[in-house]
Amino acid sequence: DLKATVLSAASPGEQKEMLGERLFPLVQAIQPTMSNKITGMLLELENSELLHMLESPESLRSMVEEAVEVLQAHQA
């Protein structure tokens, strides 16, 4: 399990990497085609928010949907 105490022992970059490794498969299950970029976007959020998303499928899903909209607007 990924806990805040484990994260606090790592560098900021390593923290994002650990969170990304756990978020990516979950994002991929929701939105397979843009999962790399969506995970990249989510990693710009606070680590506390990312930890919350890992524990709350509803939060993750709504953030992924929001990220898809932002991404599509950005690419348009």
């Binding site: 560098s11 900021p12 990497e17 990304g20 950005h74």
Partner: peptide, 22 residues
């Protein structure tokens, strides 16, 4: 322009480069 490359892609198993170490 840097906005063209936004957002950075996360790739499992690779170092995360999108977020600079502070």
């Amino acid at each position: 322009s840097s906005s063209v490359n936004w957002p950075p892609e996360f790739r499992p198993g690779e170092p995360w480069k999108g977020y600079p170490n502070i």
